[in-house]
Design a protein around this nucleic acid. Structure first.
Lengths: 111, 111
DNA sequence: CCTATGTTTAACGCATCCGTTAATTAACGA
DNA sequence: TCGTTAATTAACGGATGCGTTAAACATAGG
């Protein structure tokens, strides 16, 4: 389980961690702030943040004794990119939509 | 870890299972066929298939003594849908692209 | 310096994951 | 019916995941 994609998916496989990401989408937050909605201990939250950090899903900065977490969505882009390979298996409109997107990209390049 | 999304992400967090899905994207296959590229035992593959099945990522059918697996991408759509919420955090062109997509959808509805 | 606050690290328990080999089940076919 | 082939289940071992409490660390501020 050493490859990047596995680390990302594993990080997302926990509801607490996904909730933390959802919270961070609204803005940076300290560990205590992130812990507040949950009925688990601060050390547990601290570990979750470590997992998210190792997956590249957050970055952290220190200000005095507070550690602020910041959402980094790049890994989600990677994970989505992997799933895109299977889009044709669920999206019946994929082929037409794909054509549309290509046309748009061409237009953007021309403008 | 009882919620559906967690089960899906956990299933994807293993490179062997992702490779199995990639293989199934090319067509249905039996357990032995799926095991062939890997240097792990058949029981191990059998367990991986069980995990994928419980995540809804494959369905299985029996024909004589062979059990064929078939890719089901619906869970990937769900996972992608969840990630979409964060698209604006990585895709700088998301707003414009989003507008384009809406226009296309309107066009489709009109035609 | 001492203390309060915020956070992390250490040490532990328990459950789950991932692999193994051996045994079992299921179905075909001579 | 008996042997062969395909796959699963059982039983086990080691690693990892997720939670806990207690201790340690870091910084602000009287």
């Amino acid at each position: 389980m050493t490859d990047r994609l596995s680390v990302i998916f594993a990080a997302l496989a926990d509801p607490t961690r996904r909730a933390i990401l959802a919270r961070l989408a609204e803005g940076d937050a300290t560990v205590s702030e992130l812990a507040e909605p949950f009925s688990i201990s601060l050390p547990a939250i601290s570990r979750h943040l470590k997992v998210l950090e190792q997956a590249g899903l957050i970055t952290r900065s220190r200000s005095a004794q507070w550690r602020s977490s910041s959402l980094q969505a790049e890994p989600l882009r990677e994970a989505t990119a992997w799933m895109e390979r299977y889009r044709r298996f669920w999206d019946v409109n994929f082929t037409r939509l794909d054509a549309h997107l290509h046309r748009i990209q061409l237009q953007e390049r021309e403008s």
